[in-house]
Simulated assay, not measured.
Amino acid sequence: MKTAMFSRLVLTIILYSAFTFYISWNVHLWLQSTFSVNIPGLVVAVIFLLSYSYVLARFLKKLLFLKYIGSYWFGIIQYTLLLLPIADFIGWLFIFAGFSSDRVIFWVGTVVLLGMISILGLGTFNAYNPVIREHEIEIEKETSFSSLRVVMASDMHFGHLSGKTHANRLVQEVNSLNPDLILLPGDIIDDDPEPFIQKGFGSIMENLSATYGVYGVLGNHEYYGGGIPIYTKEMQRIGIPILMDETVVLEGGIQLVGRKDKTDRNRKHIENLLESLDETKPIFIMDHQPLELVQAAEHGADLMLSGHTHRGQMAPNHLITRRIFELDWGYLKKSQLHAFVSSGFGFWGPPLRIGSRSEILLIDITFTKNSLRT
């Protein structure tokens, strides 16, 4: 097992380095043709430093700029690897047709460069400027009120790039919607709880305000950071309970179930969490990863909120998430179950979103079978 894992790691490093060299060589050709600069060794060294800066940041935590560079590099390498083969093919066609190689390299390279600048600009805007997506649903269950306004935000990844300004934006946007209930289904922090605590994110998030409270669950990145006890203690301090295979009964008899993330192999089966609940009353589930929709519907759940997918974050990655999950983004009704998957309020890695937006979900619920209505 360890040999196989080591072999895959070595193969990944070789392929990644090969891609990096391919990008370096194209940059060298463009610099040579445009500015008569012939320093291939330096270009390769700089590009390789950029490509491994995120890894270096894991060991040199005080050099935060390495993490910033490395995060953007993930986006740069994806789109250069999509654009460069096409650009090279077009360039070869023009050169084969008799055009000057220097002029072809200059113009094709310039178009790629402008394209990358546009992608980075648009992607950054989409990442830091969330939209509100509004939904209205009906649930045929009994409560002591006729309607409920739920606001949901997931995948904030608060830490460094998704910083305090973005956190303040979340609080302002969510509170402006006058929610009855705020739900945060996982990946609230970006792995390590230390920057979340040291930078005072808690003092910002404790300003979230809803009539019936604010609740969250763990995502996979809370597990990656290895600081769940520290993180949950901080969240409890600011009045945001993190439910871990737990159920709380809210006003009106609403039963809110918060699941541990799938990362935890010891998390309870969904049927064990739901079997003792009253199916005549509303059952809401938060599960970070959008899995087991069928089981949730079969066991009487009415609302299921998830995140995790980021809708691929950077197109065309959404084609992958669409194949992995039955619902990778948006809304799906399965029997009585209303399932929602958010693309997330923040981002992982590059602060870029192409083909997706940072978002907050506003879900207005009407309870139509309501003998207890007041």
Rank of each mutant, 00 (worst) to 15 (best):
L293M: 11
D187Q: 03
I39C: 08
L66Q: 05
L274W: 09
T232D: 05
A210L: 13
Q295D: 14
A97F: 00
H338M: 08
D245V: 07
P350D: 12
D88T: 05
I117N: 11
N178A: 05
F125Y: 15
M304S: 07
N272I: 01
F284P: 07
P229S: 00
Q172V: 06
S306K: 02
F145R: 08
P130V: 01
L303K: 00
G75K: 12
H28L: 04
H310G: 01
N272E: 15
G159R: 08
G216P: 06
I240Q: 11
I86W: 03
S203K: 15
I363G: 10
R103K: 13
F340G: 09
Y224T: 05
D264Q: 07
I238D: 10
V174R: 10
K233N: 13
L11I: 14
Y331W: 11
Y128T: 04
S71C: 14
S162V: 15
P316G: 01
F284K: 04
I188Q: 11
Y331T: 05
I137R: 06
Q172N: 14
L337W: 07
I254L: 01
Q289S: 01
G202Q: 00
L81G: 13
F125K: 14
T211G: 00
E359T: 07
R267E: 07
P316A: 07
L372I: 04
G98V: 10
D278W: 04
N38G: 03
P85F: 00
L29P: 01
F6S: 08
F96K: 12
D155T: 08
K334I: 05
M314Y: 03
V217G: 13
E275D: 00
F196A: 00
